[in-house]
């Protein structure tokens, strides 16, 4: 498609529309790209915790080899400013998992997650009231 734009995609879009667009992107794309497009996009990507409430980090194969998923995941959760409710990433090689104040995590969900992570050798659960001794 030709790039014959007269519209102002940086400052002309209502903020909630820009966020609605970002909401449909993989969070790896937001981290890798949105910050560096322009000031307005950067602010939208950084200062809106609701954008990071449900984090999805898949990325394609090309990207996967170039990034540090752990670092990105930390940055994503940091941007959620405590509002992150769900995190989705593909990491069967995960070795360490720490869940702090995750009251939404239940025995059932916890067991399912741990089964998918065969290499896990370090686990911390703090203030996760809904995971009981049975789950562990």
């Amino acid at each position: 498609m030709a790039a014959s734009c007269a519209r102002d995609w940086a400052d002309g879009l209502p903020a909630d529309v820009l966020l609605a667009i970002f909401h449909r992107l993989d969070h790896i794309d937001i981290l890798m790209v949105a910050d560096r497009v322009c000031h307005t996009w950067c602010a939208a990507a950084r200062d809106e915790p609701s954008l990071w409430r449900r984090i999805t980090m898949r990325g394609d194969e090309g990207i996967a080899r170039r990034i540090n998923r752990c670092g990105m995941a930390c940055e994503a959760v940091r941007r959620s400013a405590g509002q992150c409710e769900a995190f989705c990433g593909e990491s069967p090689c995960l070795r360490s998992l720490r869940l702090i104040s995750c009251s939404g995590v239940t025995d059932e969900g916890f067991i399912e997650v741990v089964k998918a992570l065969p290499l896990i050798d370090e686990l911390e659960l703090s203030l996760c009231d809904n995971v009981g001794a049975d789950g562990v």
Binding site: A3, S4, R7, A10, V37, C38, H39, W41
Partner: peptide, 10 residues
């Protein structure tokens, strides 16, 4: 920036 004709304001 090219697709959306956004000026690099950095």
């Amino acid at each position: 920036r090219e697709v959306f004709n956004i000026k690099n304001d950095y």
